[in-house]
Each structure stands twice: as C-alpha cells, then as structure tokens.
Design a protein around this nucleic acid. Structure first.
Length: 570
RNA sequence: GCGCCUGUAGCUCAGUUGGAUAGAGCAGCGGACUUCUAAUCCGCAGGCCGCAGGUUCGAAUCCUGCCAGGCGCGCCA
C-alpha cells in the first residue's frame, strides 16, 4: 500500500474503489463481456447531490464510444461483475445517463472517525511529500514604509500556504527578501532628511519622488533625537537617515507581521547579495555562457532566447545595475541552496516579470516549473460607500496595523483567505469594522466554542469519551451524523489539493462547510431532545461526543493552519 | 497594438480533472430559543454563469472571436 492508511484514509477509500473498478473491467475483458480497449480517462468524484451516493464514476460514459454501446448498458455490466471482497460498498446503482453511484458501508466511515480521534492534531497530515524542500518567498516589502493592505493579503496567503505545505510533509523555508539597496531606499533617506530640515526651515525642498507619508516625520524626529544630523555633511546625514530609517521600518514590519501571526525563517538582504560578490559571480557565469552583450552603452542579457519577449538590460549606461540583475542573482542563489522548488508571491502588477525571470533561470538549465509565481490581485479599500485610492508615495494608504486595530487578526486573515488570490478583493472598512456577529470567521469559531461548551456540560453530567469508543459508532445512524463524518473525511484531500493548486482559500470554504454541517446537526436537538449530543442514553451520548470531538479536531486543525484562533468560549 | 487576470443571484464571492437540479455569505421576506451557547437553524424569493460560435453523450469549466473592467508591456523602482 503506497499511502499510509492512518493519514489518508479518504484517499485510501477512493483508491480502493478505483482498484475495484479496474479489476472489474479486467474481469469483463477476460470474460469477453466488454471489448478489450485501452482504459479511457474517467473520474471518481463526490456527487453534488447526496441522493447520488458517496462517490460516482463516469467510467461507463467514458467507455461508451470505444465500446460502441449505450453507457447505461455498460454500467450494468460493470455492476454485475463487481467483486467487492473487502465489503467496501453498501450500494451500487446505475444512474442518469450512465453514471455508477456508490455508497460506502458505514463501517468504513466509522474507521475514519476512529482515525481522527486517535490522530488528533495530526489529522489531515500526510507524509507522501516527506523531505521535498520548498522555498516560499513572500511579502518582501521594501523597507520604505509600513505594511499596507496588499502586504497583508500576501502575508496571510503565504503564511497559510506554508503552514499547509509543512503539515503535508514538505520541508518549507519562509523567506523575506529585503530590497535594502538602490534608488528607493536612497529616496527614503532623502525624504527623512528633508523632513528633518523642515522642522526649522519649512521651505526646505522635498525630493520629487519622496515618500509623503506621516511616518517619515516620525522617523526624522526619532533619528534626529539620536544623532546630531546638523553636525554632519548633507551626504553623511542622508546616509544615516537611509540606514536608520530602513532599520526602524524593518523593525515595525517585523512587529506587524509577528502580530499578524506571520514569521519568517530567513530575512535575506539584497545588500548581502551585493557585498558577498554573488552578483558579480552571476554576471561572470552569464558572460561565460555567452548570454551577455553590450549595446548602446548598456549591458544586456539574452532572455529572448529563453521565452522572454525581448532581451533585458542588466546594467545601465550609468553603471548602475537594474533590479533585474540582483533578482537573477538572488533566484540563482535560491536554486544553489538546493531547494526542490521555489514559490514567489508577487503583486499582480509585477506579472510582466515572470517570463524574464523564468527565462533567466532557464538559461541556467533550471526548468520553468521549478519556480511558481503566485500573483496577488489588488486589494481595493472601500469606506463610506466609495473607494479610497491608495498610493504609497502620496502617503495616503491604510496600514496593516490600522486594519488589525479595527478588525482584529482572526477576521482579517479569514477575509483575505476567502478569495482566490487571482481575483481582486474589495475590503469594505465599514463592513469589517461593524462585523462582529455577521463575520464568517465567527461562524467557524462558534462551532468550535459550541463543542467545547458541550464538553463542559458533559463533564458536569459525568459523561466522557471512553478509551475505545469504536464499538459505539454503530449508534451513529442519523443522516446528519454520517454526513458530518463524510465531510470530515475530506480534510486530508483538501489540504493535498491546496498543495497542488497553491490555493489556500479552499480551506476557509471547507471549514465553513464543516461548521455548517455541525450547526445543522446541533440544531436537531433544539426541537428533538433525543437528537441531542448529550442524551439520557450513556452509550449514545458517548458515541455522539466522539463525533463532536472529531469535528472539534478538524476545525481546530484547520483554524491552526489558517493562523486563526480556536476559542473555547464565545 | 500585444500580454496576463477578472466577468456567476441586488452586493461580495465559491464552484474539484468537463458531469446529473449552478452554491455560500450579506441584503430582502416569513418562521424556530421552558436549549447542549440563537454569533445558530429552517423556509421563501432571487440566474441568458458578459455576448456569439465551436468541440461532445454532456460546457460556468476546454477552443476561437468579440464586449467590459483591472494590471503590465522602461537603461523606473
């Protein structure tokens, strides 16, 4: 068995079903009841409509054209030849245009509940990817201002992706690249210095592309209190402002991220890249491979040979390197560190850089799919019914910090993770502020708190989950109970899918579904006391408590991966 | 002009590898608390899945062409 049953029981179920189908087809070929043809593409899926069973396959439909027979007829043949020796199935039926619907025997579902209970915090893990190393670079905000909404979205997305990847067995390194050299950071220094001069001379000119945010005044004040800037030459003073401004901002950035529940393993300085000679080395290698040439006084790299639209300048006429130059060196360095895969999370406005980056890597023999770039679309901010246009340079933007003050970490993370990173996100401040009971995050958290409350009640009543509850599971016979188990069973598959598609937002939707399924079940007990979790029958209560414990486990594990708290009371 | 992303209910968005009757939240209307927590549940209403073709047993999903919005296409950072 390839998969460890304890960690991926749901997949296991699907794999067993698939194996059963394949051996049945083989048997049909051997008996001559079906023509021997190559197996077509087909799926085994969970039908939308619960009346269609737990799993359905379109195999008969897919076989129809090569068999030259009606799909329903083929479906009947397959069903007639099924040899379900492991007693996996409860029912099978031909349905619709030629699907086969399967329902799995309750015994199999109980085994999954049993696994959840014993795995606890580990449920959902799988170790298939054990050892595969992966570098995730995200946020990477320039230390020229505080983090804003867009960074928050990237942080939430990257962090949760990393949590899921490592839970699924990848060896993950989280990295923040600090653009701490170059023109932008220089302008920061000039802006701070100008604000300092303006304290005494309001007429002192402000740099044309300077940073207008209020925080620059604060930096000027802080720095000038520590250093006597007047005693220095202007050049020296600007240098100090640049260095200290960057450090102070970086400290704030780290603090904000930490508060947001996001931590990095590596803070990589662009300066180190330059001072260590890595950039120079990279250029030499490129030159050695004949990938560089001079034109119009600048140095160019032949990215067009590797899929880019055109060649790119790597060193400007004035002798300065472009950002692209250090980005190439940086990504080659990532590759040299031996990662099996790299993921970059960028703002969508950088999408034009993907082909040139991949071209540069490919020119070194690094395949295009080694690097995956996830683009984050814009976050638009709404307040008072209209959009607030934000610009970092103009200094008019809402910071992550302000957002967290207003909305809180849990709700902010949840909102960011409900949308696909591919679609723009409208963040309505008014709504976010007033949201306390309507916020979807509370819906999920409430399910957790509710279960905790039931356990407190159970304790008072002297009921607890027995050491080995498995024997009681056949008391779980309500449709809602079985549906709950089936939903819980999908958790590992959801996580696996997130790793494959790099779409963490699936997790928020899934958890909402689990919570919904539980709330529905809970509400049965309001009208019908015998459907409560804690009933007059001890065995039944214990079985239902075990089920509730499973739900609590799934929600807690899921919220942990989202970086959201799972409160005991609300 | 070229490229990338998006277009699904009044609003914000999900929708698995192409599957059966396209979903959720909010907003609207009507119900359910002598409870295990009503931050919940149930029901009603709401849709030309941007438009037009094509592929096939079958399309929101894949292909082509349009339309609309966003973002890119620098020896800017």
């Amino acid at each position: 068995m390839i998969y460890q049953e304890r960690s991926v029981s749901f997949y296991c179920m699907k794999i067993r079903l698939d194996r059963l189908l394949r051996s049945t087809i083989d048997a049909c070929f051997a008996k001559g009841v079906l023509k021997k043809t190559p197996l077509p593409d087909y799926v085994i899926e969970i039908p939308n409509n619960p009346a269609h069973g737990h799993f359905a396959t379109n195999l008969p439909l897919a076989l129809a054209s090569s068999q030259h027979r009606a799909p329903r007829e083929i479906a009947t043949i397959i069903i007639d030849h099924l040899k379900d020796e492991g007693a996996l199935l409860e029912t099978t039926e031909v349905a619709g245009p030629g699907f086969i619907n399967f329902s799995i025997s309750p015994k199999e579902w109980y085994r999954i509940l049993s696994a959840i209970i014993s795995l606890k915090g580990d449920y959902g893990q799988n170790r298939v990817k054990s050892g595969q190393s992966i570098l995730v670079e995200f946020v990477s905000a320039n230390p020229t201002g505080p983090l804003h909404l867009g960074h928050g979205r990237g942080a939430a997305l990257g962090d949760t992706l990393c949590r899921v990847l490592s839970f699924c067995g990848y060896d993950v390194v989280r990295e923040f690249y600090i653009n701490d050299s170059g023109q932008q950071i220089r302008i920061l220094g000039e802006s701070i210095f100008s604000r300092f001069k303006q304290m005494n001379n309001p007429e002192y000119p402000f740099p044309e592309n300077g940073y207008h945010g209020d925080y620059v005044f604060g930096l000027a004040k802080t720095i000038s209190e520590k250093i006597d800037l007047e005693s220095l030459s202007e050049e020296e003073a600007i240098h100090i402002c640049t260095r200290m401004g960057k450090e102070l901002l970086l400290k704030d950035i780290k603090q904000d991220l930490n508060r947001f529940g996001v931590d990095f393993d590596v803070w990589y300085n662009e300066n180190d890249l330059l001072s260590s000679g890595l950039l120079e080395n990279t250029l030499e290698v490129l030159r050695g491979n004949g990938l560089l040439y001079e034109r119009d006084g600048a140095l160019w790299i032949r990215t067009a040979d590797f899929g880019d639209d055109k060649d790119r300048v790597i060193k400007k006429k004035d002798g300065q390197f472009t950002y692209f130059a250090s980005d190439i060196a940086y990504h080659l360095e990532k590759n040299n560190r031996g990662f099996g895969k790299a993921i970059d999370i960028w703002g969508a406005d950088h999408h034009g850089y993907i082909p040139r980056m991949k071209a540069a890597l490919l020119s070194h023999g690094i395949p295009k799919d080694w690097l995956s770039v996830m683009l984050i679309q814009l976050v638009k901010l709404w307040q008072g019914g209209q959009e607030i246009k934000m610009s970092k340079r103009a200094g008019n933007f809402v910071t992550l910090q302000e957002l967290l003050d207003e909305v809180g970490v849990d709700a902010t993370r949840f909102v960011f993770l409900t949308k696909s990173h591919d679609s723009q996100l409208d963040f309505d401040i008014d709504l976010a502020k007033k949201q306390d009971s309507d916020n979807p995050v509370y819906y999920v958290q409430y399910a957790h708190a509710r279960i905790c409350s039931i356990f407190r009640k159970a304790e008072d009543a002297g009921i607890s989950i027995p050491e080995k509850p498995d024997g009681l599971f056949n008391l779980l016979s309500l449709g809602e109970e079985m549906a709950l188990i089936r939903t819980m069973a999908q958790f590992p598959a959801i996580l696996e899918e997130i790793c494959k598609t790099l779409e963490p937002h699936r997790l928020t939707y899934y958890l909402t579904e689990v919570a919904s399924s539980f709330h529905k079940y809970f509400n049965l007990g309001i009208k019908t006391p015998e459907h409560r979790i804690i009933t007059s029958e001890k065995g039944l209560s214990q079985a239902r408590l075990t089920l509730a414990e499973g739900v609590r486990t799934v929600i807690a594990n899921g919220l942990r991966l989202l970086g959201i708290s799972a409160p005991q009371r609300m």
